[in-house]
């Protein structure tokens, strides 16, 4: 039985693990929350949504007596993770973080949840899209960009996501509002898109501001405009599209949500906790360093925001033949 002796330590660990499990299995009527809360990120570990989720969890933890475990449930353009939360027990122990992809995927993907099937409780902040061009393209202003695209339709190659992705939506909106014609080149994620504009494979991109801020400062790439209400804190010198006479506001955003049917007391408790976390100056400082815009909102305002976003997005998806799953 050398087997036994060699594994003495492991056996002890296993025993402890099993005992620990038995000990914490009794879900008593303790005040909420009495056990760990799970935060579901609907994109893979390492991405922007994951970083945001883990940061929120880190700071929300300080306001709770229980830990928050972050898990990544990814796949199907973010729809798998949302389904995971939507189908979870509505006991308040499962929360999720999501972004603009939900609004698009409910029309594109027949198996994605619609917005009504989840309960958004807190807005974290927007991640506005921007328009970047290579400096050697000779284009210096938004006006020149539109002009170039008009004189030579489809001559500008724009790097963006696959159809339905945030930067693809931004590019499509840009085409629609300014009635120009670009060649949309799809990439899998932001990093390859960044590489594409730097290497000159594409002339412009519709990425979030922070993706190319260094190159903008170094003069390699020029950010022509930001698609948000206000200027971005990382690029205060870059005017918004609105300032330049084009009413275009789009991009990603992030919000915290629950499955439908969480008891009201737990619902308002979590809403309060996350709202307080977002307003925590320490959190905001850390978020700013990670290039996240923080504009906290409570549940009602968040719902209104998403509804407006939905209303603005639907016609574009319809026009791009992307409405396949459900009609509005």
């Amino acid at each position: 039985m050398t087997f036994l002796i060699n594994y003495r330590n492991q056996i002890i660990t296993a025993l402890i693990a099993i005992m620990a499990l038995v000990a914490c299995d009794n879900r008593s009527e303790a005040p909420f929350p009495s056990e760990p809360i799970t935060l579901v990120v609907n994109w893979p570990a390492g991405g922007g949504m994951d970083r945001a989720g883990r940061l929120v969890a880190e700071y929300a933890r300080k306001r709770l007596d229980v830990p928050i475990a972050v898990i990544n449930v990814s796949g199907a353009g973010g729809a798998t993770g949302v389904r995971h939360v939507a189908d979870a027990d509505p006991d308040g122990y499962t929360v999720g973080i999501l972004g603009a992809s939900l609004v698009a995927s409910q029309y594109i993907n027949p198996n994605a949840n619609s917005i009504d099937e989840i309960d958004v409780i807190s807005f974290i902040g927007p991640d506005p899209a921007a328009l970047q061009v290579r400096s050697d393209s000779g284009i210096n202003t938004l006006e020149e960009y539109v002009e170039t695209a008009k004189t030579n339709p489809a001559s500008i190659k724009n790097g963006n996501d696959a159809p339905g992705g945030v930067s693809h939506i931004a590019a499509t909106l840009l085409q629609r509002i300014t009635s120009i014609d670009l060649t949309l080149v799809p990439y899998r994620g932001y990093a390859p898109t960044v590489a594409a504009i730097i290497s000159g494979e594409v002339q412009s991109t519709t990425l979030p501001v922070h993706q190319l801020i260094d190159q903008h400062e170094a003069g390699e790439v020029k950010i022509l405009g930001v698609m948000s209400e206000e200027r971005h804190f990382m690029a205060p010198d870059v005017p918004t599209f609105k300032e330049q006479g084009i009413d275009l506001i789009t991009g990603d955003w992030r919000a915290i949500y629950l499955p439908n049917g969480v008891p009201p007391d737990r619902h308002s408790f979590l809403e309060k906790i996350f709202y307080e976390t977002m307003n925590d100056p320490e959190f905001q400082e850390a978020a700013e360093r990670l290039s996240f815009f923080i504009t906290p909102m409570m549940a009602d305002d968040t719902k209104q925001f998403i509804e407006d976003f939905d209303t603005a997005l639907y016609p574009i998806l319809l026009e791009s033949d992307l409405v396949k799953a459900r009609q509005k």
Partner: peptide, 25 residues
């Protein structure tokens, strides 16, 4: 300052949180 894969993307996040932005600067 371009993460080529997801692992370096996480490392970039670690640098950013400390206010350090990888890249030529």
């Amino acid at each position: 300052g371009i993460p080529g894969d997801t692992m370096t993307a996480v490392l970039m996040g670690a640098l950013l949180i400390h206010g350090l932005r990888p890249g030529p600067l």
